[in-house]
Amino acid sequence: MSRLFDVRVRPLPEWLDWRRLLGPGAWVVDSGSGGGLEARADLERDAAADLAARLRNVGIGGYLLEVRIMPPLHRKDLRKAYTEEARRYRDGSVGFSRRGARVDEEGRWSLTPEAIALELGERAGGMRVIDACAGAGGNAIGFARAGCDVVAIELDPGRLAMARHNAKLYGVADRIDFVAGDARAILPDTKADLLFIDPPWGERYSKERVTIEELPPAGELLTGADHVPNRWLKLPPSFDPASLPGYDAEAVFGVGGGDERRVKFLLLRNR
């Protein structure tokens, strides 16, 4: 019988689908000290190393995850797991699948994967949507493909041109009203059922904890959005929901073979 390792992971937010995050194993979950949940399981060597590599420097919900493995793994086991995790990272969810789509460097990091954007659109259920930080158009296109009418606002003319091009490529340009300008000024006079905010956060955000104040212009947009009944925000996995009272958090996982157990972002929705 192969050796088993005692693996413990904490702190896990109560709203997190921790089963999907942690993967196979006879996990036992209890309330952890200092808040959050602690999960424990006995795993074989490769599974323990895989989990350690996948959760290294990962923060969810305002806390950096801690992974404790006893007895400690050998360095060669961890090096092998890190290499495999890097390979999986390259096999993640696809941004735009259609040839000819245009994105810039920021879009390569921040674009909502096509399948996830479409799923969000389907959840919107045909509402009229304001996409306040449209970027290259990934979210706006997902909403439009699901039957929503969209107002896509973007401050950068070059990125708005990309969004127009990509919307035509997906055959939904007629469902999207492209608006150049600052959403903070445009939003108060624009009517909609749903405000969607995906502030630019790229790869530069803190992997341990991010607050709403650190994600401009999200906070300012919310202050002028009382006339929109539904408000959704796409925020980094490490975002602390406590910094945005009145909103419920949901962890959105990848859909590709390499990131199906990786939290891509948090979806915050007003109650």
Score class of each variant (00 low, 15 high):
225 A>G: 05
108 R>T: 09
176 I>T: 09
205 Y>W: 14
65 L>H: 02
87 R>L: 12
195 L>H: 12
113 P>N: 09
50 D>E: 03
17 D>C: 06
56 R>L: 13
267 L>T: 02
84 E>S: 15
21 L>H: 02
63 Y>D: 12
45 R>H: 07
8 R>V: 14
100 G>Y: 09
29 V>Y: 10
235 L>S: 07
235 L>Q: 02
157 P>C: 02
147 G>P: 01
253 F>Y: 14
237 P>M: 06
109 W>D: 08
262 R>W: 10
172 V>W: 03
183 A>Y: 00
171 G>C: 10
145 R>G: 02
170 Y>E: 02
199 P>G: 04
73 L>F: 07
121 G>I: 01
156 D>K: 10
92 G>R: 11
182 D>Y: 02
241 P>E: 05
165 H>R: 09
55 L>S: 08
234 K>F: 08
69 I>A: 06
61 G>E: 01
145 R>W: 04
190 T>Y: 08
110 S>M: 06
171 G>E: 08
66 E>Q: 14
171 G>A: 08
26 A>C: 11
40 R>F: 05
143 F>N: 04
137 G>M: 08
61 G>H: 00
117 A>M: 09
181 G>M: 09
175 R>D: 11
201 W>H: 05
45 R>P: 01
234 K>Q: 11
212 I>S: 07
8 R>N: 10
172 V>Y: 00
11 P>E: 07
96 F>P: 05
92 G>L: 05
136 A>Q: 06
233 L>I: 10
36 G>N: 13
191 K>Q: 11
121 G>L: 01
130 I>D: 11
48 A>C: 08
138 G>V: 02
13 P>S: 04
128 R>Y: 11
16 L>I: 00
159 R>V: 14
231 R>Y: 01
115 A>F: 02
222 L>T: 07
245 P>V: 05
168 K>N: 14
198 D>H: 10
126 G>M: 07
21 L>S: 01
72 P>T: 09
86 A>F: 12
166 N>R: 05
220 E>K: 03
124 A>M: 05
102 R>C: 07
254 G>T: 00
28 V>K: 13
42 D>C: 13
25 G>E: 06
4 L>V: 09
212 I>Q: 06
162 M>I: 01
51 L>Q: 07
268 L>K: 00
207 K>D: 15
146 A>K: 03
40 R>D: 00
88 R>E: 12
191 K>L: 13
11 P>H: 09
172 V>A: 07
92 G>H: 04
75 R>T: 14
223 T>W: 12
138 G>C: 06
81 A>N: 01
187 L>M: 05
175 R>V: 07
56 R>Q: 13
143 F>K: 01
95 G>D: 03
192 A>Y: 00
118 L>D: 01
68 R>I: 13
49 A>K: 03
125 G>Q: 13
190 T>A: 09
28 V>N: 08
217 P>E: 05
145 R>L: 15
261 R>V: 09
44 E>C: 07
109 W>F: 12
122 E>C: 05
224 G>Y: 13
36 G>H: 10
260 E>I: 14
134 A>I: 04
70 M>A: 13
60 I>T: 08
193 D>R: 11
189 D>C: 07
18 W>K: 04
131 D>L: 11
30 D>V: 15
225 A>V: 03
54 R>H: 11
59 G>K: 05
240 D>V: 10
121 G>W: 01
145 R>M: 13
35 G>W: 13
65 L>S: 03
14 E>N: 04
